[in-house]
Amino acid sequence: EADPRLIESLSQMLSMGFSDEGGWLTRLLQTKNYDIGAALDTIQY
């Protein structure tokens, strides 16, 4: 079963217009401990 923190973070990022095609966003959020800010910083640079 998916981590509730992942579901919450992923749904927030999907609502911002990101896609999780191929699961890349799920993996990114997992490596950033479900921190949306850290994930966005990684995507920006």
Rank of each mutant, 00 (worst) to 15 (best):
G22I: 04
D35V: 05
L14Y: 10
T42P: 01
Q44A: 10
L28W: 03
G23Q: 07
R27C: 09
S9W: 08
L29R: 00
N33A: 08
G23T: 01
D35G: 03
G23N: 07
M16D: 03
R27E: 13
E8S: 07
S19Q: 11
L14W: 07
L28G: 00
R5C: 10
Q44K: 14
L6K: 04
Q12E: 12
S15H: 10
S15C: 09
T31K: 13
M13E: 00
E21Q: 07
K32I: 11
D35S: 10
Q12F: 13
M13W: 04
L28C: 07
E21G: 06
Y34E: 02
M16Q: 05
A38I: 09
L10G: 00
A39T: 12
L25Q: 00
L28N: 00
D20H: 01
G17N: 03
Y45M: 15
Y45P: 06
S11V: 12
Q44W: 15
D35L: 05
L6S: 04
D41N: 13
L28H: 02
L10V: 07
R27F: 08
E1P: 11
K32F: 11
Y34Q: 02
L40M: 11
W24F: 05
I36M: 06
A38D: 07
R5E: 08
I36D: 00
A39I: 11
N33C: 09
I7E: 13
L6G: 03
W24Y: 08
E21W: 08
E1A: 09
A38W: 08
Q30F: 10
T31M: 15
D20E: 03
Q44V: 12
T42M: 10
I43R: 03
A38E: 11
D20Q: 02
A39W: 04
A2Y: 12
E21V: 10
A2T: 12
W24M: 05
S15Q: 12
E1R: 05
L29H: 03
L6Q: 04
M16H: 04
Y34G: 06
Y34T: 02
R27H: 15
T26Y: 05
W24I: 06
G23I: 01
S9M: 09
L28F: 04
Q12K: 14
F18L: 07
E8H: 13
T26Q: 06
E1T: 13
S9E: 03
G23S: 06
G37W: 15
F18S: 00
I43P: 02
S19Y: 09
D20R: 00
S9Y: 06
T31V: 13
M13L: 12
N33D: 08
L40T: 04
N33F: 09
N33W: 06
P4R: 11
L40H: 02
L14P: 00
D20K: 02
L40R: 05
I36N: 01
Q12M: 14
G22Q: 05
L25R: 00
T42F: 15
S15A: 10
G23D: 05
R27D: 10
L10E: 00
G23M: 05
L40A: 02
N33V: 06
L6I: 06
M16T: 02
S9A: 13
L25Y: 00
L28D: 02
L25G: 00
A39V: 15
S9R: 03
P4K: 13
